[in-house]
Amino acid sequence: MAVRPIVISGDPVLHSPASPVVDFDDGLRTLVSDMFETMDAAPGVGLAGPQVGVGLRLFTFGYSDDDDVSWRGVAINPELWITPVSAHAPDEDEDAEGCLSFPGERFPLQRARSALLRAVDLDQRPFEIRADGWLARIFQHEFDHLDGTLYVDRLEHPYAKVAAKIERKRSWGVPGQSWVPGIDNLES
């Protein structure tokens, strides 16, 4: 197991649709193990293949809700269905979202309150999770990565303008930039 570098906004792998996983081999098991270690070290609640520079349709997730119910797993070749997204403006506190590929920042984003995730695990066993609240948000966020969309791409004015300014100020938005959890401090 190893902590992998997390790619920063601007790298083509983050802005391109990922390819389906076809080889369920030891290489995939190593990748998933590394993704869990990287996600935990960051710390994060989800991490998609493209975020570690691998353009494959998979993501890891780890989250405990207010009732101390824990969710941890890997979704390979996922499909996601969501309820309609509210037309109301996002709440600056309750709907604040962050991303390990846009580190140190949080912006409000309206997401669907419920989602249905269908995927397979490392042993190619199908599973289904019905999620509400933050777990549904995590699934939507990570699924977006598999389609080449970052959450900052979905922001509305004025948040989109602020995110673009931060990206320019930090010289992000170009290929080849990354950070390593536990080594680099990009939180400021």
Rank of each mutant, 00 (worst) to 15 (best):
L117T: 10
A48H: 07
G55E: 04
F107W: 05
Y159L: 07
K165H: 14
V174W: 06
N185Y: 07
F139V: 05
A96S: 15
G176R: 05
L58Q: 09
F24G: 13
A119Y: 06
G53H: 06
Q177M: 15
P103G: 06
G44V: 01
G173S: 09
V180W: 13
V174Y: 11
F127G: 12
S101L: 10
S16F: 02
D40P: 01
Y63G: 04
D184H: 15
P5D: 14
V45S: 11
L109F: 02
A18M: 05
E187H: 14
R170Q: 09
G55S: 15
H141L: 08
I166Y: 04
A115V: 08
V21R: 06
D184T: 06
L117W: 04
P181R: 10
S70Y: 09
I6W: 11
G104C: 11
R170V: 00
W134V: 13
D68N: 14
K161I: 00
D23G: 02
P78Q: 03
H15L: 14
A163N: 09
T30N: 14
D67C: 08
L186I: 14
L80H: 05
A41V: 04
R72G: 06
A48V: 04
H157N: 13
Y151S: 09
R106N: 05
P17H: 06
L116Y: 04
G55K: 12
A136E: 05
V52S: 10
R29G: 10
H88W: 03
D65G: 02
G27L: 00
L186F: 10
T60S: 09
L135R: 04
V7T: 15
A164F: 01
G46F: 02
A96T: 11
F102T: 03
R137V: 09
T60R: 11
A96H: 08
V3K: 13
V174T: 15
W172H: 09
A42V: 02
S33W: 03
P12Q: 09
L47Y: 12
S178A: 15
T60K: 13
L56S: 12
V22T: 15
D121E: 11
E94H: 12
V152E: 03
K169R: 14
D40R: 15
P43G: 12
S114P: 01
D121F: 10
Q140V: 09
V45E: 04
L100H: 07
V13S: 14
V74P: 12
D123Y: 00
W71Q: 08
F143E: 00
D26Y: 02
R72D: 02
E128P: 00
I8A: 14
T60N: 11
L100N: 10
V69D: 11
